[in-house]
Design a protein around this nucleic acid. Structure first.
Length: 421
RNA sequence: GGAGAGGUGACCGAGUGGUCGAUGGUGCACGCCUGGAAAGCGUGUGUGGCGCAAGUCACCGAGGGUUCGAAUCCCUCCCUCUCCGCCA
């Protein structure tokens, strides 16, 4: 949620942001709704104040044995009027809130302006895609041949966009999770294991609602949802709370499965593990002092990059442009790993600074002495485990179809150096 | 799932229809006292909306209702605890 004062005082900045994002939200109703709301509050409060003092008189009259019937009737009328005004106020606030909740975050000064994916700016690159010197396979062919990936059986169990990992494949996924968590623990992140099901308030708190309702799985008959990312439960740990200023920054990491209906992605990435309804992810979440969030985003990005480096996976870092950046983010870096099977760099982590956007909505504040304010929140994948497995298979494949396990991961694979038939 | 008891400010805990946004205690902050500290004494100490401000309104798990007036009464829901049942 953006600061309503920005709309009041710098309407043009908001309009510019919407243009930059290619968003077509209509803000014309704002000004009227805003002043209508303020007027209703002023009027209703005045009447409430009057009712309060008059009601006290009634109490006193009764005490003295006088008959308050006439005043009672008057206050009853006030009460009716207050009820009318308050319901009008509630309706106005709802409209205003719907409008505000639909406005994306103000962009960071350094977020590049652009129309879409193609305008993202590469800011860094690490490693060199291997020159294989043999006919390479993609992860589906590799994994199927090694009998570590089984999509057919998963389709029988559930349906499309699910996978069954077997043997060393299952082991590799688990190894990656543990490896990532251990690295991030070194980096200072507290490990948490949250519920994988959250309520509607939590979904709203991080901004998944109301925008992306159709992308999540809802439990039938309940106000419960399968988490689309650990960001939701972890950020909401501090919803409606004050964090002692001295405790900042607070770092969490969480491994969770993530569930996405991918309603808008029919026909995209249908092959293999790239886009699944369920995938594992280790997520990094930070709550920081507002002045520190720029610096913290760089650190967050480096912390995620460290995983790719240790796994010897070539990648590049993209600064997402205004037309491609997500709704709640002010600034975002995507880490894109090289996938030989596709001959492309593909997103494997998204590291975002939301500034106070989530914190305002979820009311996450810091307090130190007399000072208080909204914290800044950040998060990033560290990393998407399924896609890491894809990258690992494809980048570390050998001419005989076996997979070389990078050294950093071997302790997690019981010392194993290769996966082969 | 069944039966019962509860949810009040940072915490403990009073309050069962009216000067209660809420007694008291603990904690915390500041001041006095002290060589310094402890103890003691004094003062202060919630969040949010509206308002230039003075101030005002709302909030006692959430939402509705009754009433001139609700922390207090009624209804629905959520959560916690105890016992029983069931289960990993």
């Amino acid at each position: 949620m953006i600061d309503v004062n920005i709309l009041r005082n710098d309407f043009d900045a908001v309009k510019k942001m919407l243009t930059d994002r290619g968003s077509s939200i209509d803000l014309t109703a704002f000004s009227d709704l805003d002043s209508k709301r303020r007027q209703l509050i002023t009027d209703s409060d005045k009447l409430k104040s009057e009712r309060k003092s008059t009601s006290k008189q009634i109490g006193m009259m009764i005490g003295k044995g006088e008959d308050p019937a006439e005043i009672k009737a008057r206050v009853a009328k006030m009460g009716d009027r207050i009820k009318e005004m308050d319901s009008e106020l509630a309706q106005t606030e709802e409209e205003l809130n719907d409008l505000l909740a639909g406005i994306p975050n103000i962009l960071h000064d350094t977020t590049p302006i652009g129309a879409g994916e193609d305008d993202n700016v590469e800011v860094d690159r690490w490693g060199t895609p291997r020159d294989f010197g043999f006919e390479i396979k993609d992860h589906v062919d590799l994994g199927t041949a090694l009998n570590i990936l089984d999509f057919e059986t998963a389709a029988k169990l559930t349906g499309a966009r699910f996978a069954l990992l077997r043997g060393d494949g299952a082991r590799l996924e688990r190894a990656l999770i543990n490896f990532m968590i251990d690295v991030h623990t070194e980096q200072g992140y507290e490990e948490v294991l949250p519920p994988f099901i959250v309520n509607g308030d939590s979904m709203y708190g991080t901004g998944q609602f109301p925008k992306m309702k159709e992308d999540v799985f809802k439990l039938e008959g309940l106000n419960y949802y399968l988490i689309p990312t650990a960001e939701v439960p972890v950020t909401n740990i501090h919803r409606n709370e004050f964090i002692e200023e001295a405790r900042l920054p607070v770092y969490y990491q969480a491994f969770t499965p993530c569930f996405r209906s991918e309603a808008g992605a029919h026909g995209r990435d249908t092959r293999g593990l790239i886009r699944q309804h369920q995938f594992n992810k280790v997520e990094l979440v930070k709550f920081v002092h507002p002045e520190e969030s720029d610096k913290e985003l760089e650190k967050l990005r480096n912390d995620a990059e460290e995983i790719l480096k240790r796994l010897e996976l070539p990648y590049r870092v993209m600064a997402l442009c205004s037309g491609d950046i997500s709704f709640a983010a002010a600034k975002c870096y995507d880490l894109e790993v090289w996938l030989p099977g596709q001959g492309k760099y593909r997103e494997i982590s998204s590291c975002s600074n939301f500034r106070d956007f989530q914190a305002r909505r979820a009311r996450i504040r810091y307090k130190g002495g007399k000072k208080k304010g909204l914290v800044h929140t950040l998060n990033g994948s560290g990393l998407a485990v399924g896609r890491t497995l894809v990258a690992l298979l494809e980048n570390h494949q050998q001419s005989d179809g076996s997979i070389q396990i990078p050294e950093a991961l071997r302790p997690y694979m019981n010392g194993k150096e290769t996966i082969s038939k």
